[in-house]
């Protein structure tokens, strides 16, 4: 068939093909290697005392319960604040804004926010929330910083979902005499719930993985805080990622670091799976 193909061409094709398949295989092996290595080194050191206690200098033991709780608190507080703002902004962009230029400016701002590196968020969060608002190094300052970090994601996924809500729904509601707000509250938002959920899941992923933005805002403390304490000014606490960094870089406790990495990895797998599920639902509705 391809008898007209010269030897040079054949070699070139074979080399390119090989490169393509090697690169794809590399991705697979990379993931497998990373997951395998972390779990093998981390899982054996995950013990009940590690998960249910705080570090103790007297007993010379390490526990990561405070870090687990802090991660949880930051997720909750960040989402409680970021979700209404993000969904509100998306509703404004999709349902209210008539001026194309205003929409463009807000979208440009959102894109800019999503391109800013974590370390700059951490620094600005420290300047604004820790110092200017005098919240001190605290979980609440960290959460407020992460509100800005997660906002672009929530706006984007909600907006995409709002775009898939058929216009007939809106016209139907308005035609029956509903006001615009009533229409949005009872018809548009419920139909866009899957996009909002996707935004939440992706934001949780970002918060769980965030470290540079929290180092100077939420701090490095390892005390167990109550749920109300967690939103008080001056109550610092490190999340799992920050704890991993401290144990690995500052203290050389690699077994603990790998245990935390295993937990983070399992969380990441779980979050990724949940996001895929939500996205699949979203696509089904879109068609």
């Amino acid at each position: 068939m391809n008898s007209g193909i010269s030897k040079r061409r054949k070699v070139e094709i074979a080399v390119l093909n090989a490169l393509v398949f090697v690169s794809a295989g590399l991705m697979f092996l990379l993931l497998l290697g990373i997951i395998g290595y972390i779990l093998v080194r981390g899982i054996p050191h995950i013990t009940l005392p590690l998960l249910t206690s705080k570090p103790s200098l007297i007993n010379d033991t390490i526990g990561i319960l405070p870090n687990i709780l802090n991660t949880l608190y930051i997720i909750i507080v960040t989402l409680i604040i970021a979700l209404p703002i993000g969904v509100g902004a998306a509703v404004y962009l999709n349902e209210y804004a008539r001026n194309k230029r205003i929409v463009r400016i807000i979208e440009l701002a959102t894109e800019t926010l999503s391109g800013i590196p974590s370390i700059i968020y951490g620094l600005v969060g420290m300047l604004i929330f820790v110092q200017f608002c005098s919240l001190g190094t605290s979980l609440i300052a960290g959460a407020l910083t992460l509100v800005i970090v997660t906002l672009p994601t929530i706006i984007k996924t909600t907006q995409e979902s709002l775009k898939t809500v058929p216009n007939g729904y809106r016209e139907g509601a308005l035609g029956l005499g509903a006001g615009k707000w009533y229409m949005i509250r009872t018809t548009v938002l419920p139909s866009a719930i899957d996009g909002i959920v996707t935004g939440c899941i992706l934001s949780i992923g970002r918060i769980v993985g965030e470290s540079a933005a929290l180092l100077f805002t939420a701090g490095m403390a390892n005390e167990i805080l109550g749920i109300w304490e967690s939103v008080m000014p001056g109550k610092a606490g490190s999340t799992l990622t920050v704890a991993l960094y401290m144990y690995a870089k500052e203290r050389g406790e690699f077994d603990i670091a790998f245990s935390i990495a295993s937990i983070l990895l399992i969380l990441t797998l779980f979050i990724n799976f949940a996001a895929k599920l939500a996205a699949k639902k979203l696509r089904r509705k879109g068609n």
């Binding site: 993931l31 990373i34 993985g209 920050v242 960094y245 983070l264 990724n272 895929k276």
Partner: peptide, 16 residues
């Protein structure tokens, strides 16, 4: 694999 790699926290990459 690509999706999962993008979700791994940067401190975990640093540790590895």
């Amino acid at each position: 694999a690509v999706d999962l790699l993008s979700g791994i926290p940067s401190v975990v990459y640093g540790l590895l």
